[in-house]
Write a protein that binds this DNA or RNA. Structure first.
Length: 410
DNA sequence: CCTGAACCTGGTGT
DNA sequence: AACACCAGGTTCA
């Protein structure tokens, strides 16, 4: 398999501007895979991209598919066409995908000065950017996300690529496929197959949506819902209209259009708008965000005691009012801070402290001092209820005590 | 408009 | 071990 694996390149960028370890794991894309220690890989625009990062650089490498097609056997997706080697647009692609234009540190400052809660939560979650993902991939990925968890969603999306997406190449012996086209998922056998693969009721949503996009509306319909300022890779940006309370007109049109699809409700539509269509003011209100809105932004009472459609827009509007045009970006920071996968980073009441537990005299005259480094994670939840207005619930997440013994010479 | 129930599945907690 | 509960919700009555 003659794969052209390029050398590692590097792009200077600080962890405050982009942190791939957070951005690629925070549930906005379900397709990134760990290809080695501290190395993330995925297929993008017909090539495998791999990334590493340190404090000063983002390191990247592109692996293009071989020009030689391998013999296809039954039910195997076709091989992607090779890409001309002389015009390597990988750097431009990366800058587009990671959405590197906005100054993130500046935005964090803006959100922090407008919102004390953001200011409190954000310091341990810097460098989170909204990716510019393919609209079609975002649509299918977030249809999979309904009433589901990130780990299973990732597995499902991986299965879609594996069974219906073109094989691009291998990294560390593992095959990497691109995301399937609408046509590939519009096949009549797809629904039953996806059910066998454990997609549950989402199998029907995916099959229906694929048929509508492939045979009725066309992929251009979806791509034309993009924010004109933030078009798909390779297109020229054009200005968008003014921000209103409910978002720009283009955003509202896109959201409305997506709602017509089966399996797409307000939350999924917002995820597609934010992560796939470049509408930065989109604020998906899911269970996490609803919890946050109740805990930190006084929602959950009176008219907005449950997450109805009206409450949904009220919450989203509140966050747009608070954070402005890039409200969806700020939202993702707080969302990530709420994810269990990142719970070790939550603001702990007791930070690392070391205390002596016992001192043992050894027969040889030296003494052994045993210490306990208490890094037990205590997550403090501020709960507000009717009868008890405000009390803290200290949750011991994990006992991470590390005992260290060290010898002290006499 | 709002409410409640059903929906697939796999991991976690009791 | 069996069972409830939950996970980036949506549909239907």
């Amino acid at each position: 398999m003659a794969l052209r694996a390029a050398e590692w390149q590097k792009l200077p960028i600080s962890l405050m501007e982009l942190c791939i370890n957070t951005t690629l794991r925070c549930g906005q894309s379900f397709r990134w895979r760990k290809s080695a220690e501290d190395e993330w890989s995925m297929v993008l625009h017909g090539r495998i991209l791999s990334f590493r990062q340190d404090a000063t650089y983002l390191y990247y490498r592109a692996t293009f598919p071989s020009a030689l097609p391998t013999p296809p056997h039954s039910n195997t997706p076709s091989i992607a066409p090779p890409i001309a080697s002389d015009e390597d647009d990988t750097l431009a692609l990366i800058q587009h995908y990671f959405n590197l234009e906005p100054n993130l540190a500046q935005l964090y400052e803006q959100w922090a000065s407008a919102d004390p809660n953001f200011k409190k939560r954000a310091p341990k979650f810097t460098g989170i950017r909204i990716l510019r993902q393919d609209p079609w991939e975002a649509l299918i990925g977030f249809i999979c996300s309904s009433n589901n968890n990130i780990s299973r969603i990732s597995g499902m999306v991986h299965n879609l690529c594996k069974h219906y997406g073109p094989l691009i190449g291998h990294v560390d012996g593992e095959p990497y496929h691109d995301f399937p086209t609408p046509e590939a998922l519009a096949d009549p056998k797809v629904e039953a197959h996806l059910k066998e693969l454990g997609f549950g009721y989402r199998a029907k949503y995916i099959a229906k949506t694929a048929r509508i996009v492939a045979e009725e509306k066309g992929l251009h319909w979806l791509e034309d819902l993009c924010n004109p300022e933030s078009p798909i890779f390779g297109k020229e940006p054009k200005p968008a209209d003014e921000l209103a309370e409910g978002g720009r007109e283009g955003y509202r049109k896109a959201h409305e259009g997506l709602l017509a699809l089966h399996g797409v409700g307000p939350k999924v539509a917002d995820c597609v708008c934010l992560f796939g269509l470049g509408w930065s003011e989109s604020v998906p209100v899911d269970t996490h965000v609803w919890q946050i809105a109740q805990r930190d932004y006084k929602f959950g009472k009176g008219k907005h005691s449950s997450l109805t459609a009206a409450t949904y827009t009220a919450v989203a509007n509140r966050f747009r009012q608070l954070w402005g045009k890039e409200a969806g970006w700020a939202h993702s920071v707080l969302f990530t801070a709420d994810l269990k996968a990142f719970s070790e980073r939550v603001v702990a009441k007791s930070e690392i402290k070391e205390e002596k537990v016992k001192v043992e005299k050894e027969p040889d005259g030296s003494e052994t001092i045993e210490t306990v480094t208490d890094v037990t994670v205590k997550r403090v939840k501020r709960i507000k209820t009717e009868d008890e207005p405000e009390h803290d619930v200290v949750q011991i997440v994990g006992d991470l005590r590390t005992r260290s013994k060290r010898r002290k010479a006499v």
